[in-house]
Amino acid sequence: MSEPIKYFTTTVPFWQPRVTPVELENATEEQLEAMKVTVSNTKIGEYTLVLALDPETLKQRTPLFNGIMYSRGGLSRAETELGAVAASVVNRCIYCAAVHANRYNELTKDETVMDSIFASSENTGEDSGIDPRQMALLDFATKLSKCPSEATKADVERLMENGLGVGEVLDLVLSASLFGWANRLMHVLGDPLPQD
């Protein structure tokens, strides 16, 4: 078996669960409903099949995740992804970081920001060449992701000085917080392996 990936990458790994997922053919009605399985949608990933072991939380989590990451208005899609990546770097969730760095790169057509974040992940933000607004976003999301949170009023003021509106700050709080949740599932319940 391949060794788990230990370093940040924008190549999305294969996620190998550490617990035994639900088998789709044996899933209960409640599990199927939580996974949103329909006749036209029978390709369900391993991660969803693992989370279906607790269908009550999965049923709420999926629309919550989509609501935070894809709602219209407020913070841009790309900047929402920055919050997700910052949390994933703090929590060293290689899988989540790869998926969301990849989305960021697709949305912005700019790979330099993620290259810089991953290169300086032990030493966030110094001499990164990242613009001040993005740096303010990253620093806030990084501090909020620590346990306990290290984010301060001054960090929020810095976001607003860099042009974020109150609604955008809220969306950043939600995105970084959401990955405090997602990373604790993805990184704890499985291993990121190289794709074949």
């Binding site: 607790d54 909020l144 306990p148 949170s149 709080v173 917080s177 405090g180 949740w181 604790r184």
Partner: peptide, 19 residues
């Protein structure tokens, strides 16, 4: 998975509140 969801959810909730 139940335990993981519990830990992960509170970790989210506490950060939303802090923010």
């Amino acid at each position: 998975v139940r335990l993981s969801e519990l830990i992960a959810f509170i970790s989210y909730q506490v950060r939303v509140i802090a923010g």
